[in-house]
Structure formats: C-alpha cells, structure tokens
Design a protein around this nucleic acid. Structure first.
Lengths: 349, 349
DNA sequence: CTTATCCGGTGAAAGCTTTCAAATTGGCAA
DNA sequence: TTGCCAATTTGAAAGCTTTCACCGGATAAG
C-alpha cells in the first residue's frame, strides 16, 4: 500500500505539504497542490485510517450498540444510522448487548480503544451508560442515546414521542366508544414503556374512564409475553374491549392468544400495537399500530452525532420524533352489550 | 488514557517486556509478569487497537458487507457473525450495499484503509467481489462469501443447500399429488436463485412432470415482485396448483395476490416459500417454507474467517449448510378436478 | 532602505505498539 | 573462579499520519 512518503517524493514536496493538501489544513499553492493530487491519483493512495486515528486521537468510526439485531424494530434504526454515517465518511461498528448490561459494559469498555468519534446507543435493561458516557465525553467522543434512556440520562437523545403516540391512539379508541381498556406494557424500567403507559393513562383520565390496576399488565417486549398476559386479561370480568400492546410483538402474541381463546379480533376485542413493523400488515386481522420512524431515529441520531463531532458544543439536545396512528383491521367499535360489567356474567350459564 | 510506557515505568520493566507479557510473545519470568499485570490492573490499561493495528498491519476488525439490513433475512446472518466475532475479540464493521455494486465497490475500497482482518460478504447483484478480494488476500485479509456467490468465485464460501432444499420441497408437493407447478424465482444471476430453480426442475424432471417456461417467472426478491408475478401466473391455463416462491417475501406477495384474486390458499393453490422467516408463522394461511439457518450462515462464516486469520492456509472451503422443510398451512393436496388442463375452462361459463 | 508581516512550505516530533537485534543475567560445567 | 550457553530483558526502530515550530522570501509599512 502506498503511503504519504511516496506521494511526497513523487510530487517532490514535503510530507507536511501532502498532509495539508489532503486535509485542507493550510493553504497550498496551486501547482504543488496539483502535483500532489496527481501523485495521489496515480498511486491510488488512500490515507491509513489507523495512523490518522492514532495521531488525531479520534477515528471516523462510530460505535452502534443495540440490544439485538434480530428484534425486527432495530434493523431500521441501524440502517438509518449507517446511511448517514457512511455518506459522511464514517463507519459503523455494530454491537449487540442482548439487553444484558454486563455485555453492554464490555462493549463500551472495549470500543474505547478504537477511539471512535462517537457512540449511538440503544441502552440495555438497567444500563450503566450514564456513567460510562462521561468518560467517552471526556475523551472527546459524542454519545447519543436512542429510543429509550438509561437512568439519569442528561446527554443527547433521539426518541419517538411515545406518550403522544399512545395518547392519540387511545383517544381514537375512546371515540369509537370503548370504555374497557387494558394494556400490556413492556418492562416499565424502560422509558419508552413508561411513556406509552403514561399516554394511555392520560387519555383515559382525561375522559374519566377508570382503569383497574389488573388491567395493566407488564411483560417483556416479545410475543411470548404478549400471549401469556393476554390470557390473563381475557379472564378478567368485565373482559376488556381493547388491548393496547406496548409494541407490535406483544400485540402479535395478543392476537394469537385471542384466537386460541376462541374469540374474534376485532369483534370481541380490539388490539392496538406500537412500532408499526412490517408484520403489522400481514397479521390476521392486520394490526393497527402507532407508527414510529425507526429509520429516522437512527439517521437523526447519526446527524446529531456528526454535529457534535464537528464541534457543536451546545447544551444536550433531546430530539423527539412524531408518531402516526396506522389504523388497520384489528380495531373496531365495541359490541353494544358487553361493555357493562353486569352483563359479563350471563356468558357463563 | 494510560499507555504501555506508563505501565512499563510502574512495573519497572522495559516497554518490550510489557508487550511480551500482554501478547505472550516471549517467556517472561513470573515476578516481572506479575508486576506488569498488577500495573495493568491498577491503571485499567487497555492497549490501543489503533497503534496495534498500525504496527501489525492488521486489526481485529471484520468488515461485514450485506445488501440491506432491513431485508428480514440478513439480520440473523449478521447476528451470527457478530456473536462469533465478538466472543473472539473481533468487531464487526457493518456496510449496506443496497445491491448496488458501485456502493459495494466503495465499501470494499475504503474498508481496506482500516486493515481489517477479513471480510464477510453477501455479494450485491453483479458483484465485482472476485477481483477485489484478490487484493485483500494479498494484504493478508481473508474474504468469506456468504449466501450467494459472485461470478467466478473461487474463495471460501458458506451457503445453504438451496438446490437440495428446493428439491425436497417439490418432492413433497409431488407426493401430495400436484402436477401443475409454477415458480417465481429471484434474480437468476444470483446463485441462490439459480440453485433453487435447479432443485425445482430436478425434482420435476425426475418425476417426468413437464413445466412450460411460462410457469417459471423471474423477479426481485421482494413482496411487490411476488405479487405481480403471481397475478401473471394465475391467468395461465391450466392454472398452476403450486407456486414455489424464491423466498418468503415473494411468497408473501403471492399470498396477497391470491387473496386479491378471490382464490383460496391452499384450497385453490398451494404456496411454498424459502427462508422460513419469522413472518412465515403469522401469515394467513401460515406459510410453508424451506428453512435455512441464517444465524449459522453468519456464525459459520465468522468461524471460517477466524481460522484463516489464525493461519489456516488450506485450499478454499465451500461449506454448505442443510435446510429443512417447514410445513404449515399454505400447502395442501390439489383439488381433484382442476389438475387436468381441459377442465380449467368450464370455470368461465 | 530597513523592518515588521505574512504566506508557503519544510522537517521533525509525537502518537502507541510490536518486533528484532543486542545486551544482560543466571546457572552450570570445567 | 572462569567461561559459556541459554534464557530473559532491553532499547530502538518501524509503521503512517498530523501538527507545530520555524525558515526563506516577498510584500507592505515606516
């Protein structure tokens, strides 16, 4: 591989001049500049990112730490980040944590030795990111938190407007006439799960629709959790006419549980998801869902990161992206009768 | 950040000794070794991967180049590779090509300057990888091709047994009594699409079931393509009783097209996919599919890569992983009547 | 005409590790 | 005690780039 020294010799200039031409770090007169560029061209020279990073104390790599690439929501986020990073000359180092904060810590610890320009993180459960990020920041690396925030997070973040998304969705269901609401939340130590629950509750309080705590179930963000919790909810009396799921995987589990219980969605019970994954379109019935912009979450985070790398030292930014309600076939107005508690019993003669 | 010099001073040994302790590159007597390790511990020292890579002419990064992370088949492959890489101290640099060979070339070109230990590549359409890989190999970096191979590829590869998978699936359908087969292949310049078609044809030839060329449609590996081609196939007379889709996304499009045409799957027509994505389980009817081990594809590639990095210089390896047929509700025996060509017409009185 | 500035350009140091030749140590045989 | 070999340990070079102090020459000011 050619190096700067060879370029310098061919172009008959000094090493420093080559560097200045390549980085625009000082004015270089036209003829010299041309000679350098020609030499670069002729040898197909590319600067060593390693040497450059070593010298500058910073590479153009970005660490991207996510829970699990095979969870269908995350690839879009990663893709958004990669696109922006790549088109600005940065590369993404991908790390999965499996929501294990020890594994996250290991990644955080080891990534440092690559001197990344920054980190884009979707924190794991019980993440220790807040403490770690401090040391990155000291080393001049930006850290952007995406989708959900660890405890006491004060730094930059890009999230979806979970609260408003949930709120709008529940409002819609209220207008349809529903009064028996249940929700299956994700793990409530995660901020996104909390916010979705908060939106759910605000909409109902505002309409003075009470919700018994039994109708709020917490589980993991997956199909199994949704399935099991739905079975619990379906046994409650009165039976809820709506299940608002913390994400689409939970909603998917809910649909299966409803079907397996011999009930019909949406006739007997409406189901609403969150995320609007591709799968929402192909379930039966197709799943209504609060759509959040996964790709934009990633691309926005990457842009914010680049701003920081380029010197923006303003106060922490908290970017919140809007959501939209995607209405499909899994929701319908409630049936007239079973809304009243007293009526539920006759079903078991 | 602490460096080796500081460790050396604290441990009261030379720089070289620290390096030898850390790398086991030479025998170091116990007391010195202990002093070094203690110093490392006390300062939380971690060697700079950049300096190490610069000196060794090779980093412990692995470039992973794939068409598109948001295509649901690829995340599992990436995840498999990342797991193995990480647990061996390697990091993955992720690059999407969007099947654009120019973008692939750009990645290939630029990744070189990071001196990766190797590359794991799912080649793009019309990939130029074969030429590029040569220069990587010269630089001591291994290149492993996964899932499908570019033209004239002679190097290491890890693929699924597409031919056998397709063959077994078609055999199964033959046993069910089907005689009118159609297939919607992926782009036939891709080896995996070719192989699946080959398996399809071998099974039918063996049973002396002829297939008119019209019944073989080629398209892109996505839902839209599957939808459009299915509409074409459904207009043929006699109407096929089976559509073997080149992958699950195509199959999904086929299911939608069948439904939109007022037909029933599997009663009127059976549909078979390939990949066995998560979505196969939740379509209606659930999709039968040839299951290929995405995660293993990635993890096997990573293991092979590590073998190469560690000095295995044997001849090129072509690892082929087995597939299994996952039977769900989208296939059924053909209805008695419409199997014969002549009978198709009465349907349009 | 001299002096202060400025522009372009240069060479060397620094950043951190690995590796190799050379120096040193320790042990053992003579 | 001396000599010698093998085992350890050391110091410096190399790998490639960025950056900074500094220099020659030219221009502007006095």
């Amino acid at each position: 591989m050619p190096n700067m020294k060879q370029i310098a010799k061919i172009a008959n200039v000094s090493l420093g001049t080559v560097s200045h031409v390549l980085n625009g770090s000082a004015r270089v007169r036209e003829p010299l500049k041309r000679r350098v560029l020609e030499a670069v061209e002729s040898l197909g020279y590319q600067p060593s990112q390693l040497a450059r990073g070593l010298r500058r104390d910073k590479t153009n790599m970005v660490g991207m730490i996510i829970p699990d690439l095979t969870n269908p929501f995350f690839p879009a986020v990663v893709r958004g980040a990669e696109d922006i990073a790549f088109s600005n000359g940065y590369r993404l180092i991908l790390c999965n944590t499996d929501n294990d904060h020890a594994k996250e810590l290991a990644h955080l610890d080891q990534l440092r030795t690559y001197l990344p320009a920054g980190l884009i993180v979707i924190p794991s459960h019980f993440s220790d990111l807040t403490a770690q990020a401090e040391s990155y920041r000291k080393a001049g690396a930006a850290v952007i938190c995406v989708d959900r925030l660890p405890k006491h997070w004060k730094g930059d973040s890009v999230t979806a407007d979970n609260e408003a998304g949930a709120y709008a969705a529940i409002r819609h269901l209220l207008k349809l006439g529903h009064r028996q609401f249940a929700t299956i939340t994700g793990p409530l130590h995660l901020t996104n799960a909390q916010e979705r629950l908060a939106g759910f509750q605000r909409a109902l309080q505002q309409s003075r629709v009470p919700v018994n705590p039994e109708y709020i179930q917490e589980t993991t963000f997956d199909k199994q959790g949704g399935y099991a919790r739905t079975l619990v909810l379906l046994r409650l009396i009165p039976r809820p006419t709506v299940i608002f799921a913390g994400n689409d995987l939970i909603a998917l589990g809910a649909l299966l549980a409803i079907r397996d219980s011999g009930l019909l969605c949406p006739k007997d019970i409406s189901v609403l998801g969150f995320d609007d994954l591709d799968l929402a379109d192909i379930t039966n019935p197709s799943l209504s869902s609060v759509s959040q912009p996964g790709y934009q979450l990633g691309s926005t985070a990457a842009r914010l990161l680049l701003d920081r790398v380029r010197g923006d030292t303003g106060p922490a930014k908290h970017i919140v992206l809007g959501t939209t309600l995607k209405i499909r076939h899994s929701i319908a107005p409630p049936e007239r009768r079973p809304a009243r508690p007293a009526r539920a019993k006759p079903r078991m003669p």
